[in-house]
Design a protein around this nucleic acid. Structure first.
Lengths: 207, 207
DNA sequence: CATTTAATGCACTAACTAGTTACTTCTTTA
DNA sequence: TAAAGAAGTAACTAGTTAGTGCATTAAATG
């Protein structure tokens, strides 16, 4: 039975969600602890009670973000699809995940600005990541066997490329929309980009 | 004849260079004006004398950065090369520019975190950018005519993709090296990535 | 050489920010 | 039901940071 006025778990979760939004909006350096407290409808003291420091809170947010995207990825069950379908599904998924979770991109950018300092204390993520590369490697091998794909494609490079063509477009949507003088985020542009990305990847692997 | 102890131009330039480095290292929010002054071996008062505010200084740094990459791009004289060579040259150039000027990437990231707020007061950049897209469009048209390239390729999408496959790899080099458990920045990895990128683009356009 | 103009330096402030202290209020359980 | 422990609050601190006022010094000009 949950308490109404006092619920540690709920408060902790509210803080985490608020932190995710604030870190995504302003980056680690730009985020304000007071702002996170206000968004979470919690007292600032509670943040330090549950998460010790701003950096530790960031670390937790980052870990959650990576675990979430990888967990969603696993649910795709790519092994059950044909190699070509599997790859197309992965490209679509990656694109849509970035689109629906824009905070993921900002968090990763922020972490890279800090030279992956926080990630380094999260060794659990290695394994999760290895799984993804193995999965893509598997698709590639199946595709080669069936004659759909050419041989000699590096799974890590392909993975990076699939992420890159979506990530870059979305992370640079503001400067991009300005410089190319078109709204990169309207419905038509987004559909066009996704189609282009699928094309890029399929042409890259095809025999 | 240049003054020795007082040289407005030199001081101004030193401040700009120092600001570029500091903004690239920490982002707009994380950069410290005192640090810029120290790096520039100038008094903080001089920064405000020449650039009015931290944001105005950032704006200037950003404008310089965009003008510099576009100016370097123009020097490639892509129109004098065969379509395939021109495209390969552009992919190589983009990659090497990012590699040698890592601050460009960080500045762009920072500007996107701020929703391209500063860029919006720099209308001059539009024209410079239009030139680039036209140039790539020209290469595409020549390639289609010669039968090397397929038709129906959007120049803006291609441009974005050429930037994306290099940019993503390099901006995420810290998280990437950690997650993929390999040093993405050692000589061999960099060469491998460039080769993969050239391959990706050429397969994308080929007839 | 004298006067003006621009460059430079020091010391300051007003606002902000991560983190803490000291306290109150609620919930659980022996 | 009393006591202990956990959840929550408000006000504060110590340090930092962008931006300035004002005096000084060097170069330009007539």
């Amino acid at each position: 039975m949950k308490a109404i006025k006092r619920d540690a778990e709920a408060t902790k979760a509210r803080i985490l969600l608020a932190a995710k939004k604030e870190f995504a909006r302003r980056g680690l350096g730009g985020a304000r602890v007071d702002e996170i407290a206000e968004r979470a409808k919690a007292n600032k003291r509670m943040i330090y009670h549950y998460y010790q420091s701003k950096e530790e809170l960031f670390r937790t947010v980052l870990e959650e973000a990576y675990l979430d995207i990888r967990s969603a990825e696993r649910k795709l069950n790519l092994d059950e699809l044909s190699p070509t379908d599997a790859l197309e599904t992965l490209v679509k998924f990656t694109w849509n995940y970035y689109l629906k979770n824009p905070e993921f991109i900002t968090l990763v950018n922020s972490e890279n600005l800090h030279r992956a300092r926080h990630l380094k204390s999260l060794p659990k993520l290695h394994e999760t990541m290895r799984g993804l590369v193995d999965q893509v490697d598997n698709i590639l091998k199946r595709g080669q066997k069936s004659g759909e794909f050419r041989s000699g494609i590096d799974a890590t490079q392909l993975n990076i490329t699939i992420a890159a063509i979506g990530y870059y477009y979305l992370t640079n949507r503001f400067t991009g929309s300005f410089l190319y003088e078109r709204d990169l985020m309207d419905k038509k542009s987004l559909e066009e980009r996704l189609a282009f990305n699928i094309d890029t990847i399929l042409k890259l692997v095809s025999a």
